[in-house]
């Protein structure tokens, strides 16, 4: 997918995340479409670009969210960096493979966000994991699999292959 295509996809996901995703909230848990985008970029491009895009997407999410500035920036930068650790080659290995990668990265991302947000409080890590981190990652992975099925498959092809 070209850079322009990714930009259009990002704008689409950003609008959905701001206005549509809040409607899908269940008991304080909602999926993170922007994390799906960061993972998509991380899988398509080199680790350098995954990290950089993760940083800017996180920064933008922080600016338009009501929590501490910098929380999503850290979580998405690390997520963008780690994506390649889960898949060295193409993402186009099927919906379950993609969902699994999103779930694994989502666990790390949600843990970082909730851990930093609850820093200095008496919230138990176990409660945090079972109440928010794991359900949130699962919800995001389910949404990612729906996105995978809905989007054309060339979106998931690595940029290097396409540009050859």
């Amino acid at each position: 997918m070209t850079n322009f295509g990714l930009l259009i996809l990002f704008l689409f996901f950003f609008v959905l995340q701001l206005f549509f995703i809040p409607l899908l909230e269940i008991k304080g848990i909602k999926p993170d479409l922007l994390l799906v985008f960061v993972i998509l970029v991380g899988l398509q491009r080199e680790r350098f670009w995954g990290t950089l895009v993760g940083f800017f997407v996180g920064l933008l999410q922080d600016l338009f969210c009501t929590g501490f500035l910098g929380v999503f920036t850290i979580a998405k930068t690390i997520s963008g960096f780690l994506v390649r650790a889960f898949s060295e080659k193409s993402v186009n290995n099927g919906v379950l493979n993609f969902g699994g990668i999103v779930f694994a990265i989502g666990l790390i991302h949600n843990f970082l966000v909730d851990w930093i947000s609850a820093w200095g409080t008496h919230v138990s890590i176990l409660i945090m994991l079972f109440r928010f981190v794991i359900p949130g990652a699962f919800y995001t992975a389910v949404l990612a699999m729906i996105v995978y099925e809905l989007l054309p498959k060339n979106v998931f092809r690595q940029y290097e292959y396409e540009s050859r």
Partner: peptide, 18 residues
């Protein structure tokens, strides 16, 4: 090393932002 240098710089910036 550039990936690690970039990660270090961006995380430092994020921590400063927090």
């Amino acid at each position: 090393l550039r990936d690690y240098i970039l990660l270090f710089l961006l995380l430092s910036f994020s921590l400063i932002l927090i």
